[in-house]
Amino acid sequence: MANAWRGEVEIVVDGERHLMRLTLGALAELEAGLETGALVDLVRRFETGRCSTRDVLALIVAGLRGGGWSGTARDLLSAEIAGGPMAAAKAAAELLARAFMLPGES
């Protein structure tokens, strides 16, 4: 079960449950891989509903890697995420929000 206090978000990939978490290293890797802008720009895109599938994939990969997964974005191209693209986008947004929330905020 995901621990929201640690910023964890659960996702099921190819039938296997994973915990995602944006550690400092995962955030640095995410920011280095962004096509445009910085992490703040990514947050704005999610807040305004202008995020791309590339944004969602980048966040999912960073979160999985922060949770201990050793794969790459290429590994997810043919993977099945439970709930489909909408569930993936929701998990990515929740992951990003939890990374910047203080305990007790909602």
Rank of each mutant, 00 (worst) to 15 (best):
E80Q: 14
S106V: 07
E31P: 06
V12Y: 01
W69P: 09
A2C: 02
R45L: 07
A93D: 12
A97P: 00
C51D: 13
E35R: 14
V9K: 08
G67Y: 02
P85Y: 07
D55A: 00
R44I: 10
E31A: 08
N3C: 03
L77E: 14
L59Y: 00
E31F: 06
A99R: 01
H18D: 06
R74F: 08
T53P: 03
E105I: 01
D75W: 02
R50K: 15
S52F: 06
M1K: 10
G63C: 02
L76M: 08
P103C: 10
F46G: 00
A28T: 14
I60G: 00
A4F: 11
A82P: 03
A62M: 10
A99L: 04
A99Y: 01
L76S: 06
L76C: 07
T48P: 02
T36V: 06
D55K: 01
V13P: 04
T36H: 12
A62V: 07
G33M: 07
V40W: 04
A26N: 09
A87G: 13
D41I: 03
R6N: 11
D55P: 01
L57Y: 00
L24Q: 12
R17W: 10
G84Y: 07
G7V: 05
L42N: 00
R74T: 08
R45I: 11
A4Q: 11
L59N: 01
G63S: 09
R65G: 05
M1Q: 11
A73L: 06
E94V: 06
S70N: 14
L59Q: 02
H18N: 10
E10M: 11
L95S: 12
A89W: 05
T53D: 12
G15F: 02
R65Q: 15
A87S: 15
W69A: 07
R50Q: 15
K90D: 14
T23L: 04
T48F: 12
F46Y: 11
L102F: 10
I81P: 00
L39R: 11
T23A: 02
G84S: 12
L102A: 15
L59C: 04
R65M: 03
L30S: 08
R98E: 07
G7T: 06
A79C: 04
G25Q: 14
R21V: 05
N3I: 03
